[in-house]
Design a protein around this nucleic acid. Structure first.
Lengths: 199, 199
DNA sequence: GTCTATACCCTGATAGAC
DNA sequence: GTCTATCAGGGTATAGAC
């Protein structure tokens, strides 16, 4: 990783900012180049079209690597106290979603998920499926070890994730994140969920 | 209600179709006028700008009138069997959301919620808040009558709605609605929810 | 790699005849 | 209310000098 951001990198970064702010169609190459500090035409040395910029962004941020970013050893130790584990897990997820880059990317996805730019499917489901898999695994293990009720892990995962996601999405409209309020809602949800599944 | 749709009405209808399909910015007045079958300039006899068309659409579809559209006498009779009531209620909601106009409007909202066209806030929260209030009332009554556990009705409403909404939103990306699959997921959710709150 | 210059099309919007 | 005609501005993208 070079320390000085090349122009290409700068274009991607700027484009993400503008796309996430105003949407793909409403953002022009002119806007992007102006902010980067180069001419419109110079952009075309790095990307052959506006669409290619968009697709590069998608490819760059598509993978969250949740396991790596959330499942620390420290967190796994809390598995002995499942309710606390779920709260810590959720908060870590909220923090991850609150990171500027992830936030912008999520906004972009939410905005453009129906646009089908260049036929490629831009789905929020994709972003959620990784999380769904991870939660399904964790909750499935809890079922197996008799920590929680015997319920289909996929259902458990959906019930656990859906409110979390909606809480996050709702607070994304206003940009003042008020993360503490979010975390209060998250904790309420986890408590409800825990009472629903505990034995 | 006039039988023959006036041009103004036709513009609104066409604009909703195109906005919901490609987004506000990507849809031009030309696209709209072409589909309506008039010249671009003729549009300006009815709306002074593209923005005004958008805002008219928002105003037209903003109110769902959930109480009226969902709470029938027949449904209320099922209150004696709460679990069945919740399933019927959810299915009615899904059917409502599946109506072409509501579906398109919801798509449009999901796409443009971050755009802040003309400074007006276009939030999905607004669409959900009416539902939240209704569910809060119903579930609050259930709590009061000792049918379900004593839990804050607002929390109950959120826990009930979030998965429903996410299920609906996910199936909105692909236009083949496969409503039966949706309803299966809905039923799973309601069963989970019911087991979480029953006494 | 970036610049200037430019091609060429589409945009929202207006003026004025019918 | 709809039309033709027209506008200025902005859109993506390319050519060629430096």
């Amino acid at each position: 990783m070079p320390k000085l951001k090349g122009t290409k990198e700068k274009i991607l970064e700027t484009a993400l900012n503008l796309f996430a702010q105003s949407g793909y169609a409403a953002t022009s190459i002119r806007d992007i180049s102006r902010r980067v500090g180069i001419r419109e035409s110079a952009v075309y040395n790095h990307f052959k079209s506006k669409e290619e910029i968009f697709l590069s962004i998608i490819d760059k941020y598509r993978f969250l690597d949740l396991n790596e970013k959330i499942l620390s050893d420290e967190l796994l130790e809390e598995l002995t106290t499942p309710q606390r584990f779920l709260i810590t897990f959720s908060n870590k997820l909220i923090d991850l979603w609150d990171k500027p880059e992830e936030k912008k990317f999520m906004r972009l996805l939410l905005m453009e998920q129906f646009s089908r730019i260049s036929g490629r499917e831009i789905s929020v489901n994709g972003l959620l499926s990784e999380l769904r898999t991870l939660c399904g695994m964790i909750l499935g293990e809890m079922v197996k070890h008799g920590i929680i009720k015997k319920i289909d892990p996929e259902i458990l995962a959906d019930e656990f994730i859906a409110p979390l996601f909606l809480i996050r999405a709702e607070f994304m409209v206003t940009d003042e994140s008020s993360i503490s309020e979010v975390k209060k809602l998250v904790e309420q949800h986890v408590n409800f969920f825990w009472n629903a599944v505990r034995l």
